[in-house]
Amino acid sequence: MADIILHQYATSPFSEKVRLLLGAKGLAWQAVEIPAILPKPDLLALTGGYRRTPVMQVGADIYCDTALICEVIDTLAPSPPLYPPAQAAVARVMAAWFDSALFTAAATYVFQPDGVASMLGHLSPAQVQAFVADRKAMRGDTNALRMPPPEATAQLHETFGRLETQFAAGVEHVAGPLLSVADFSLYHNLWFIRRAGALAQMLEAYPRLQAWYARMNTFGHGRPRVVGGEQAIGVALSADPVALDEGVREGEGLQPGDAVTITPTDYARDPVAGVLLALGPHRVTLRRQDPRAGALNVHFPRQGYQVRRAA
């Protein structure tokens, strides 16, 4: 198996989701510490414009979005399985909701005034201003990551209360009796809230949820080794992208070889341009060429991304 390289930063909750998964799988991996805000020249050389965190690299193949990253890691290291057959559908649906709706509530809750000092207190005023401007630009004119704080707090309490009841009934994991991807998607929300200083006290009302969190936390982060962005680009340049033969699903109106753009449908709508290689029900892949990194396959989940013919 080629080395896994995770482009991430320490305080990123979605990076923590993947770091914990790598720990659960007992994997060695390489970590590239990227900036929390633009510019990200080394990362964008690999992705072509996609700037969400994290991004996973295996040779000259670049995987965007933790929904897809988790699937790829599970394929590379199947034990313990992330998608137990009897729970696979519900686990995927729950994970998607935790990563979107619940994370929106968690981010709104955490970035109330009482939480900002804990989350951003290590930054200078100029750095805080730059961070806020970057996140505002990511949202654009959408309502993503915008929710009235009382509604966000209510949503968190309702979700955590229902999970507390489920754990009290003897169910050990989020989507059923077995560990699944849903556990990791819930985990990073709690990890995020726990960093919010006094605001983290809300979790004290849910002792069984906290016990579940403690069990998950024992997975650790596997065996990471820090490498530089230039080194990761060199790995891509010296590798060949994986050959694909998936084709394009009928009804999409596109063909392999078409020039396309791929853009998230919610926020951080930075399009990635390239040549379409594969477009199926679960994944879309394009080929792009970068002066520094060479030929690359860039992979996205089908859900949550818009594929358009390039102008």
Results as ranks from 00 to 15, higher is better:
Ile5Asn: 12
Leu120Cys: 08
Gln57Cys: 07
Thr165Gly: 02
Arg249Trp: 14
Leu186Glu: 00
Thr159Glu: 14
Phe184Thr: 04
Pro224Ser: 02
Val18Arg: 01
Val227Ile: 15
Val260Leu: 07
Lys40His: 13
Thr47Leu: 00
Pro177Trp: 07
Gln57His: 00
Ala86Asn: 11
Ser238Tyr: 05
Gln57Ala: 07
Leu82Phe: 13
Thr159Phe: 07
Gln30Gly: 05
Ala144Trp: 07
Ala205Met: 08
Ala107Lys: 10
Phe192Pro: 12
Leu254Tyr: 10
Pro13Lys: 01
Asp290Asn: 03
Leu254Cys: 04
Ser238Asp: 15
Asn189Pro: 14
Ala117Glu: 07
Ala77His: 13
Lys17Phe: 06
Leu68Ala: 04
Asn143Gln: 14
Gly176Leu: 10
Ala89Asn: 11
Arg139Phe: 04
Tyr267Asn: 08
Val55Leu: 06
Val181Arg: 01
Lys17Val: 03
Ala126Lys: 14
Thr108Ile: 02
Arg292Val: 01
Pro81Ser: 06
Ala311Asn: 08
Ile37Thr: 13
Leu237Trp: 09
Leu186Trp: 01
Glu172Trp: 00
Val298Cys: 04
Val55Ile: 08
Ala105His: 04
Ser185Ala: 09
Thr104Asp: 09
Ala88Leu: 10
Met119Gln: 10
Ala154Gln: 14
Met138Asn: 07
His157Ser: 13
Pro54Gln: 04
Ala236Tyr: 14
Ala96Leu: 14
Glu33Gln: 11
Leu237Ile: 05
Ser238Asn: 11
Pro148Tyr: 08
Phe184Asn: 02
Pro177Gly: 06
Arg195Asn: 08
Asp42Lys: 08
Ala243Met: 07
Asn297Trp: 08
Phe98Thr: 02
Ala60Cys: 04
Ile34Gln: 14
Gly229Pro: 12
Gly274Val: 09
Gln127Leu: 05
Asp258Ala: 07
Val284Asp: 02
Ser118Ala: 15
Gln30Arg: 13
Arg92Ile: 03
Glu250Gly: 12
Ala311Cys: 03
Gln129Glu: 15
Ala152Arg: 05
Val284Thr: 10
Ala137Tyr: 13
Ala45Glu: 08
Gln255Cys: 03
Ala154Gly: 15
Ala200Tyr: 03
Gln155Lys: 15
Ile5Tyr: 10
Gly121Asp: 02
Val275Met: 04
Ala107Asp: 07
Glu33Gly: 02
Ala106Tyr: 12
Thr165Asp: 03
Ala211Leu: 08
Ala169Thr: 01
Ala243Ile: 07
Pro256Phe: 09
Arg195Gly: 00
Thr53Ser: 07
Leu286Ser: 03
Lys40Leu: 06
Asp134Met: 10
Glu172Val: 01
Asp270Pro: 03
Asn217Asp: 15
Gln255Thr: 01
Tyr267Gly: 01
Tyr63Pro: 11
Leu179Gly: 00
Tyr50Val: 05
Leu279Asp: 03
Gln231Thr: 13
Ala243Trp: 02
Gly257Ser: 11
Gln87Asp: 08
Leu186Pro: 03
Ala88Ile: 06
Pro281Asn: 12
